[in-house]
Design a binder for these strands. Structure first.
Length: 369
DNA sequence: TCGCGGAAGGGTCCTACCTT
DNA sequence: AAGGTAGGACCCTTCCGCGA
C-alpha cells in the first residue's frame, strides 16, 4: 500500500522549538528499546509510545507532515520528549501498556492496536446485556475470554441470550421492570420482536421483574464461568421433545443451538486454561545481554528483576517467586477487569514468539530450587 | 562504516458500502 | 438487520541510497 504525500499545508506554530527538540533527540537518543513520553506545556503526558530502536523511531516524528500525519500532530502539541530505556522489546510493550493505563494520554485514544481478540462482556446497569466485542468499555462489569472467532462467539452469545431471555437491544434502551409503579395502566409493547418470539423476557416493557431478570443474567454468568450447564439441559430437553413429536426440522435447529453452547462451554474453558497457563517465571533476553526475569501469574506480570546471577540474588528472587506461588488463586470467574489489557498483551506476545515459552520455568520449580 | 532521510512493508482496526 | 468486504488509517519496522 502506498501512502500519498499530500501537498504541504500551512502549519500552526508548534508548541516547542522543533529544531531544538530534534537536536536533543539526535544528541541523546540511542538505538535501543525504550518507552517514550511526550508532554505538553502544562506538563501533561499527551502520548506514550514504545520503540525497539528509539532513535530511529523518534526521528521519524520530525519528518512527518502536519496535519496529515498523526506523528506531526502529536509533535506540534508537545513541548518535550522523555524516554526510559528498557532491556528488551517485551519490556517496551509492557512499559508502554502500563504507562498508557496510568496516564491515559490524549493521543493514545486508540490504545495499543497490536492485539486482536474477542471478548464476551456483561454490562452493568439495572438490565445488563451480554455481548461480544473486541474492546472493553467503561460500562462493562465483567469479561470472559478471549476467543478466536468473532463470528462463532457472536452466534453462541446470541443463542445464550435467546435461551435465557436476555435483551440484546441498545444500551440506552429505557428499562421498566414489572412491578415498578408507573402511571400507565395500558399494556406496554416490547421494543422489538425478540419478545414476541420468546427470545427476550422484555425488561423494556415491564414483562419481567428486576429479580427475575437478574436470575437470568446470573445463570448466563454461571454458564460462562463453567459453574452450570443449565441452558444446555433446556436445549437437550427441547431437542428430544421435538424429535419425539416427529418434528425433525425443529429438532435439527435445537441441535444447532446445542452445538453452539457446547462450543461456547469448551471455548470458555479453554480460555480459562490459557490464562492459567500464563503462570511462570519468564527469562527475557535483554537486547544488550542484561536478561530480565518476570514473575507472571495468570497473564499478569507481578514482579520483575534483573535475572539473578549470583547465589544471593537467586535466593532473594526465589523469595519473591515463593511469595507469588503461595498467594491463594482466585476462584475461576470473569477476567480481572483491571488486567485484561495485560493478559491480552502477554497472550499475544507468547503467540507471536513461541520460542519465548522455552525460556519459562514453573513457579514451583523456582520456589523449590 | 555509520547515520540520516525517504519510502515501502506488515499487521491491525475502522468505516462505508454492498449483498443477502 | 446482519454479514461480508474493500479501502483507508495507524503505528511502527525494515530496507535502501546517499553523504560525511
Amino acid at each position: 500500500m502506498s501512502r500519498s504525500r499530500k501537498a504541504q499545508r500551512v502549519a500552526p506554530i508548534p508548541s516547542a522549538d522543533l529544531e531544538q527538540l530534534r537536536c536533543r533527540v539526535r544528541a541523546l537518543a540511542e538505538n535501543r528499546p525504550a518507552v517514550y513520553r511526550m508532554t505538553d506545556a502544562a506538563g501533561r503526558i499527551i502520548y506514550v509510545g514504545k520503540a525497539k530502536r528509539l532513535r530511529t523511531r523518534l526521528l521519524t516524528y520530525f519528518r512527518a507532515e502536519y496535519p496529515d500525519d498523526k506523528a506531526a500532530r502529536i509533535l506540534y502539541a508537545a513541548t518535550d520528549i522523555a524516554w526510559d530505556y528498557v532491556p528488551s522489546e517485551f519490556a517496551a510493550y509492557l512499559g508502554e501498556l502500563r504507562q498508557i493505563r496510568r496516564h491515559r494520554p490524549h493521543f493514545n485514544y486508540r490504545g495499543n492496536v497490536t492485539r486482536r481478540s474477542v471478548l464476551i462482556k456483561m454490562s452493568g446497569g439495572p438490565a445488563p446485556r451480554i455481548y461480544a466485542g473486541g474492546t472493553v468499555s467503561r460500562d462493562d462489569l465483567r469479561c470472559y475470554g478471549p476467543f478466536q472467532s468473532l463470528g462463532r462467539t457472536l452466534e453462541a452469545v446470541r443463542t445464550l441470550n435467546d435461551l435465557l431471555g436476555i435483551r440484546d437491544c441498545r444500551a440506552t434502551m429505557p428499562i421498566v421492570f414489572a412491578g415498578q409503579g408507573d402511571l400507565f395502566d395500558e399494556p406496554r409493547q416490547a421494543g422489538c420482536l425478540r419478545h414476541e418470539f420468546g427470545f427476550c423476557s422484555g425488561p423494556c416493557a415491564g414483562f419481567v421483574t428486576e429479580r427475575e431478570y437478574r436470575l437470568r443474567v446470573d445463570t448466563a454468568a454461571a454458564f460462562l464461568e463453567g459453574r452450570t450447564i443449565q441452558p444446555m439441559d433446556r436445549v437437550v430437553a427441547a431437542m428430544q421433545e421435538a424429535a419425539e413429536a416427529g418434528r425433525y426440522e425443529l429438532a435439527t435447529r435445537w441441535r444447532e443451538k446445542f452445538e453452539q453452547l457446547e462450543w461456547l462451554l469448551a471455548a470458555t474453558s479453554r480460555a480459562r486454561s490459557a490464562v492459567d497457563l500464563l503462570t511462570f517465571v519468564y527469562r527475557d533476553p535483554g537486547t544488550y545481554g542484561e536478561d530480565q526475569a518476570y514473575v507472571v501469574v495468570q497473564g499478569v506480570v507481578r514482579a520483575s528483576a534483573p535475572y539473578p546471577a549470583t547465589p544471593i540474588e537467586r535466593e532473594a528472587f526465589k523469595g519473591v517467586v515463593a511469595g507469588e506461588a503461595e498467594r491463594p488463586k482466585p476462584a475461576a470467574g470473569p477476567l480481572p477487569m483491571d488486567a485484561i489489557d495485560e493478559i491480552l498483551l502477554l497472550m499475544a506476545w507468547f503467540r507471536a514468539h513461541p520460542d519465548a515459552l522455552g525460556r519459562t520455568t514453573p513457579l514451583e520449580e523456582w520456589a523449590a530450587a
